[in-house]
Design a protein around this nucleic acid. Structure first.
Lengths: 185, 185
DNA sequence: TTAAACTTTCAGTAATTTCTGAAACTTCAG
DNA sequence: CTGAAGTTTCAGAAATTACTGAAAGTTTAA
């Protein structure tokens, strides 16, 4: 399980970026190692390759499983657990996206909903509430849309993304062809 | 500058979420306070309202300015600086998005480009490189697309988002109407 | 040019987060 | 059963990140 220089660089980078992506250094490193490795890899091999404690490895793997980024792969004859990525690159990116939405947006939406239920105590509060409402609506649109996009599936999503500036033109086109169909939601 | 209960709750929550959104607790609190406050507010008032040191306040404001989320607002007669949001809610959300892309995606794209330049040393490296390439392409699409969407401007973007599941249907429609126009990029 | 009013910086401290490793637990072959 | 091979947990140590407050810096009115 000696890492090649290329893999080492990538693993180290994913470690450094880890905290910006919502997990910590070792979790990022473990993820990179599992993704870049062609073979299923055991917890012990991971600990050795990254020079981290067995306990830390176990926690990192647990977290990656909670993010649904890696999964266990049981090898028939073997006693120990092996790990592999939970899907292709596209799937993994999606999972990170979704999981982050849950952690970064959902709690705020829920708080905002609560705060908007109370009657404002005075003008200041009324104005603040109005702004909180704007934030809530924005987050709601973004959430709904991201779910929509996920439902499109990889192929269509790719078509849409590759469309580039064509999206703008397409919207115009649609307005001409299907007037009054804006309220699809 | 006594905060009302509503504003206090919101400010505290934005503080707690701060770290998940890419900055720290006080920065989140300061942002919320500036956004929810109708009047421009001075650094000293912020420090008092949040019970944080003047130094910390100054650093937080500096960071928020580097994110282009708040800006100075010079009041004619006054000596001190006042602060206000750098735009409406939509603009602010966009800035956070953009700024995070810079911090979370761009460095990785740049590393991946470098790693893909080297010739693979063996089969393992060749395979890893292939995966890194996939990641690179994915990030590139996402980046390009998010720029595209920003160029659409708020109104069109909103139309697109509100379209909901209509997007899928629209893509089908487009294929029928404009066959062979997929390669807009 | 002075000094009052304000801002920024930064060394040291406090708070938080991550990591280790030993102990407890689980599973299974013999 | 028993113990070997493995995993998980968690209290404390280490590392990182955030915060304070005093000192240095800046600006402007007089």
């Amino acid at each position: 399980m000696k890492m090649t220089p290329l893999i080492t660089s990538a693993v180290m980078h994913f470690g450094e970026m880890g905290s910006r992506w919502g997990f910590n250094r070792t979790v990022g490193q473990i993820l990179a190692l599992i993704v870049l490795n062609d073979e299923p890899i055991s917890a012990q091999e991971i600990a050795d390759a990254l020079n981290i404690s067995r306990g830390n490895t176990s926690m990192g793997l647990k977290e990656l499983q909670s993010w649904r980024l890696v999964k266990q792969h049981l090898v028939p004859g073997e006693r120990k657990d092996f790990f592999i990525p939970a899907g292709d690159i596209w799937t993994l990116a999606n999972r990170v996206f979704e999981e982050r939405r849950k952690r970064e947006i959902d709690p705020t939406m829920s708080l905002l909903r609560d705060l908007l239920l109370d009657a404002p105590g005075n003008d200041k509060e009324a104005s603040a509430q109005h702004k909180l409402n704007e934030i809530h609506d924005l987050l709601e649109s973004v959430t709904a849309w991201s779910e929509e996009l996920q439902n499109l599936g990889p192929e269509k999503l790719n078509t849409l993304m590759k469309l580039g500036s064509g999206v703008g033109r397409m919207l115009d086109l649609k307005d001409k062809l299907l007037p009054g169909k804006n309220s699809v939601n």
